[in-house]
Design a binder for these strands. Structure first.
Lengths: 247, 247
DNA sequence: AAGTGGTCTAGACCACTAA
DNA sequence: TAGTGGTCTAGACCACTTG
C-alpha cells in the first residue's frame, strides 16, 4: 500500500462515492473552494449526482476524516484551512533499507544481557513495576561498513519467549514484529555527537554527527521494547511524505 | 484532532459500527485473533450484532483501510500481520514549538534575494522550467539563543505575491500556509555537521552535530517551496506517534 | 457455480444546534 | 423550531474469485 497515494486527480474512480470525493477534493485543491467556503448540502449533492444521500455521506465523511472539510450540524460542511503539519513517516526494516542501497546486508550481535530492570531501564521502557529485561546491542552492516548501531531493551514480562532466543542469527526487530501485536509506537528523532561506544561501533570519530531514531512500542498499554538506532550522518535519511487525504 | 487517538479500548463508542470496529480491533490486538485468522463473514457479524450488513461493512471497511485486516472476495476477511512501519509525524509551527518550551519567540530575517533560478535552485525545488525564485534565510530564536536556522527557496511562478512581501515581520512559513493550498509535501530528515554559515547563525562550533529537516511542498503538482531547517543537536527532537488505526 | 465483498438505494429516526 | 449531519435498515445488483 502506498501511503502517498492521493485521492484527487485520479483517472476515473470506479465507484460513485469516490468520484464525488475526488470532485470535491479537486475543487478545494485548485482553490476554487477556498477555506471557509460552505460546500453544498448532502441533499443538494445527492440531487446533483442523482444518487442517494448515503453515497454522498460516504464521500463527505471521508473528506472530514481526512481533515479537508469540517462538518457542523445544522450549518453544513465547510472547507478547512490546512493547519496541522503532519506527515506520514515510513520507517523501513533495516535489511530492506540496506537492500535498497544495493549493498549486501549483514547482522551482528554485539552483546546480550538479561537483568532485573534498573530505574534507568524502567525510564527507557516507560515501565512502572520492576521486572526482568533483556538488553541487546547489535550492528547492521551495509557491505563492509557498519551502517547502524542498535541498542535495544526488551520487557521480558511482555515477551517472555525472548529469554530463550539467542539473537545470534535473528535481528531482534524482525523477530519481535509478528510475534507481538503492537498497539502503539512512539518515535523520537534527534541528532547527537557520537559517544565513544557508538563511535567505535560505527567506525567513526567520537563527536561525529549522528542521526538517532528511538522507538518505544506498546502492546495493549503494555511496554514491549525501546530501541535506539544510531546512524552516521550522511549514511541515512528519513523521508516522510504527506498528502492531505487518502482514498 | 489528535492523530494518536486509538480506536480500541475506548469506553463505550456511541455508534454501533464503532463498537463493532472496537470489538474486532481488540480481539486482534489481544492476540485472540492471530495474523491469518479469518474473521466472521459480514452476514455472520450482522446476525451476531442484530444489525444490517451495511453497518458491519462500515466497520470492516475501516479496519481494512487501517491495515488491520485484509479483505478478499469469495474468501472472507483475514487478520494481517503488521508490516509497514509507518508513523504519523507531527511537524509543528516553530513559533508554537518555542512557545511549548516556555520561551519567548523572536523571528529575524537574515537575507532576501530575488533571482532567476539557477540549475541548483531548480534541483532544490524540483522545477523543470526556469523562472524567478526568492531565497530567504532567517533565524528563529527561543529566548536569547538562536533555535533554528531557516534557508528557504520560493517558486515565484507559484506564489507571485511573495515578491511584494518583505518578510521582515512575517516568517515565510506561516505566511505561505493558508495562502497556498498545498497538495503534497515531502520531508527529509538528516543529521549533519554544521557548516560555517549555519554554525555562525546558530552560535555553535563548526562541525557540531545538527538535525536538518528539509521540506518540499507542492500545490497541484506545482512546486511551491523548499525549506531547510537546521537545529543544533540537543535543542530539538522530532516526535512521531503511531497507532495502527483511527476511528 | 456459489458465495464473498463492493456498492448503492430510498427510505427512516435521532441528536444537535444555529436561527 | 427547523434543518443539518449521523446513523441505520432491509433490501438489491454486481464483480470477482475460488473451490
Amino acid at each position: 500500500m502506498d501511503v502517498t497515494e492521493a485521492i484527487s486527480a485520479d483517472a476515473e474512480p470506479a465507484s460513485l462515492h469516490q468520484r464525488i470525493l475526488a470532485d470535491i477534493s479537486d475543487r478545494i485543491m485548485s482553490g476554487e473552494w477556498a477555506p471557509g467556503h460552505r460546500i453544498p448540502f448532502e441533499h443538494e449533492l445527492s440531487a446533483e449526482y442523482g444518487c442517494s444521500r448515503m453515497t454522498v455521506n460516504k464521500a463527505l465523511s471521508q473528506l472530514a476524516k481526512a481533515g479537508l472539510i469540517e462538518r457542523r450540524r445544522r450549518s453544513g460542511s465547510f472547507v478547512r484551512r490546512p493547519q496541522s503539519q503532519a506527515a506520514i513517516l515510513e520507517i523501513h526494516d533495516i535489511k530492506t533499507e540496506v537492500a535498497a542501497l544495493g549493498l549486501p546486508y549483514r547482522y551482528e550481535l554485539t552483546s546480550r544481557r538479561k537483568r532485573k530492570s534498573t530505574p534507568d531501564d524502567r525510564e527507557r521502557l516507560g515501565l512502572k513495576n520492576s521486572g526482568a529485561v533483556l538488553e541487546l546491542t547489535c550492528r547492521h552492516f551495509a557491505g563492509a561498513q557498519p551502517f547502524c548501531h542498535e541498542d535495544r531493551l526488551v520487557n521480558l514480562a511482555a515477551v517472555p519467549e525472548a529469554a530463550d532466543e539467542s539473537f545470534e542469527e535473528n535481528a531482534p526487530g524482525p523477530w519481535l514484529i509478528g510475534r507481538i501485536p503492537w498497539s502503539a509506537a512512539e518515535h523520537r528523532i534527534t541528532a547527537v555527537g557520537a559517544e565513544a561506544e557508538t563511535a567505535a561501533a560505527l567506525n567513526i570519530a567520537e563527536g561525529s554527527p549522528c542521526l538517532v531514531v528511538e522507538r518505544r512500542t506498546w502492546s495493549a498499554d503494555h511496554p514491549v521494547t525501546h530501541v535506539r538506532f544510531t546512524y552516521a550522518a550522511g549514511s541515512h535519511a528519513l523521508v516522510a511524505r504527506f498528502t492531505p487525504s487518502q482514498s
